[in-house]
């Protein structure tokens, strides 16, 4: 039974510990909402790579608010071939949990 004790409440550490940003939760939310189908973390697909987004908004004021607006309002987004679609509205569970949305945006901006 000693084995169980060792495996018990041990260290808990995160590889990407950054002040305030829960990367794993952000990525989980992104996967649930199929974000990665169009946005690679570093890879451009139909939408810009998140690293490119972070680059674009680096140091800019109101970046967080702008991006939160982008993913919650359903505003039109332009595709590489020219057509436009309403950008998917990110859903959280429980619904409208702004803390999760904020965490997601903060993670994107940190890349």
């Amino acid at each position: 039974m000693t084995a169980l004790v060792v495996l018990g409440f041990g260290l808990a550490f995160s590889a990407h510990a950054m002040a305030g940003v829960d990367a794993e939760a952000a990525k989980a939310l992104a996967r649930q909402n199929n974000c990665f189908k169009c946005h690679g973390a570093t890879k451009e697909k139909d939408g810009p790579a998140y690293s490119a987004v972070a680059e674009k908004y680096k140091g800019k004021d109101g970046a967080e608010a702008r991006l939160i607006e982008h993913i919650t309002s359903g505003e039109k987004a332009k595709f590489p071939d020219g057509h436009e679609e309403a950008h998917k509205i990110v859903k959280t569970s429980p619904p409208d949990d702004m803390a999760q949305i904020k965490n997601l945006i903060d993670w994107i901006l940190s890349l």
Binding site: R31, F36, K37, G40, A41, K43, K45, D46
Partner: peptide, 9 residues
């Protein structure tokens, strides 16, 4: 696989 890549669940 352009869109359905390693980030899939």
């Amino acid at each position: 696989t352009r869109c359905h890549d390693e980030s899939e669940t």
